[in-house]
């Protein structure tokens, strides 16, 4: 459907300037998620928006070479795995499911370990949402990978 460059120098310049800032803001939202508003889901959506913007203005031919849908699939699977391991690993160390206090990170204790566990889960959720939304867009457009 969208194969070529978008033929406008204004749109190309503005999009290529905007994408790194969207990604930086997305990382800020993910990392800062347990202190303020935001979190893994919103940050993942913002990351997916940056990739979708690149797909829209570069066209699928170049954009698939920069970030292929297989990479999006891998990111989604890795995020889901991170979430699953953060849930299951405390079970093996004597806690409940998603009980971050029993994560096997031995040099951090107590409340700090719980905050670190929340951060790990947020990163997992962010990667999973990012990969899934980019994949939804790609399969909706229906180009060949």
């Amino acid at each position: 459907m969208i194969k070529q460059h978008y033929q406008s120098i204004v749109i190309q310049t503005v999009c290529s300037l905007l994408i790194p800032f969207i990604q930086l803001f997305a990382l800020y939202v993910i990392i800062h998620g347990h202190y303020g508003p935001g979190g893994g889901f919103q940050g993942g959506v913002l990351l997916a928006v940056s990739i979708i913007l690149q797909r829209l203005y570069l066209g699928s031919k170049i954009s698939y070479r920069k970030f292929s849908p297989k990479m999006a699939l891998a990111f989604g699977a890795i995020g889901m795995l991170i979430f699953g391991f953060a849930g299951v690993v405390p079970l093996a160390f004597g806690g409940a499911f998603l009980d971050y206090e029993n994560l096997p990170i031995f040099w951090v204790h107590g409340a700090e370990l719980r905050a670190l566990g929340i951060l790990i889960v947020e990163i997992g959720i962010g990667l999973a949402v990012f990969g899934t939304l980019v994949l939804i867009f790609d399969s909706l457009v229906g180009e060949r990978w």
Partner: peptide, 15 residues
């Protein structure tokens, strides 16, 4: 509100 602004006004419009 953050979820609604990113998902509702951002992604779903594009889709």
């Amino acid at each position: 509100a953050f979820v609604e602004a990113t998902l509702g006004a951002g992604i779903s419009g594009v889709l």
